[in-house]
């Protein structure tokens, strides 16, 4: 009996034997990266060289397939039969490259990539720093953190918090169970929604812009400098509203279950702050 257990343990260890892949190759200026992974971690870093380096730690029965189709470079672990094991990737790409990552049980990290970025996981968080172009992030279970981004920025979580800092562009952020926090954002088009979570937006409200922050069960906080020009619409069923006195908000009557609006400055931007059940705050910063 003891022997059998020992044999099994050795067999299991053999199956887990790790192997390294490390390869570097030149890539065209317009090349795109598409990496798919089942389980593990992926870290993609932008570098100064016109080359791509792929380092991967993977099971001995798996191999890393790097293939090109048109301008797209595909990276994927393969195994003759069955699903590849846990793979840890470290990939360095030319800084301006467009990157598309797709995983299932995979934690994703992207740093200093200036091209368009699309990252999707199912069970795993996503961390992006120094994004330079359009960003599309999507996971089911895990937190999402984005620093940077220009143009169209879209973030979708389900269970997990979303944090965005320093983004410039049109922002859409959606999650179901989790807080959404935006800091230092410059945008004329912001749409943030969660069902069960708080929303904090600290940034600018620009003339002519549109800002929509909605939750069902959570607080809403808009932190902006005074002197903005906005028509602010506030709605709650079972919550409350408070504004920093510095804004000199004039509301004749505030009752629960009612929507009301007020104008700041010229009223140029349109701001909607809504939560079914929670506090809505207008804070000066």
């Amino acid at each position: 009996m003891m022997l059998t257990t020992a044999t099994l343990a050795i067999a299991a260890l053999a199956g887990l034997q790790q192997q390294q892949t490390d390869t570097t190759f030149a890539v065209a200026a317009n090349a795109r990266l598409r990496l798919s992974n089942h389980a593990g971690t992926v870290r993609v870093t932008g570098g100064d060289q016109a080359t791509m380096r792929v380092r991967a730690t993977h099971g001995s029965r798996d191999h890393i397939a790097i293939t090109t189709r048109g301008t797209v470079i595909h990276i994927e672990a393969e195994r003759d039969r069955g699903m590849p094991n846990f793979v840890e990737y470290e990939v360095t790409v030319p800084r301006g490259m467009a990157v598309e990552l797709d995983g299932v049980e995979t934690e994703m990290t992207v740093e200093g990539v200036g091209g368009d970025l699309s990252v999707a996981s199912v069970e795993g968080g996503i961390t992006v720093r120094g994004a330079g172009a359009a960003v599309d992030l999507n996971t089911v279970e895990g937190d999402i953190s984005l620093e940077g981004g220009r143009g169209r920025i879209s973030v979708s979580g389900v269970e997990g918090t979303v944090t965005v800092t320093g983004a410039r562009g049109d922002l859409t952020v959606e999650t179901v169970e989790g807080d959404i926090t935006l800091d230092g954002v410059e945008s004329t088009n912001v749409d943030l929604s969660t069902v069960d979570g708080d929303i904090v937006y600290r940034g600018t409200v620009q003339d002519g812009g549109r800002y929509r922050l909605t939750s069902h069960d959570g607080d809403i906080e808009l932190g902006v400098a005074t002197g903005l020009n906005a028509t602010v619409s506030v709605a709650t069923f079972d919550g409350s509203f408070e504004a920093d006195p510095a804004f000199r908000v004039q509301i004749s009557e505030v009752r629960p279950g009612r929507r009301f609006s007020f104008t700041l400055g010229t009223g140029s931007a349109r701001v909607e702050l809504e939560t079914f059940d929670g506090e809505i705050r207008l804070r000066s910063r």
Binding site: E123, E141, V158, E159, V176, V195, D196, F276
Partner: peptide, 26 residues
């Protein structure tokens, strides 16, 4: 789908359903 994913999706759908029910009651 992975059972963990199914669980998260179901919990989130339940959260949304509760929110829908509360909105309907209101």
């Amino acid at each position: 789908l992975d059972p963990a994913t199914v669980r998260v999706l179901e919990q989130s759908l339940q959260t949304i359903d509760r929110a829908i029910a509360r909105a309907q009651e209101a």
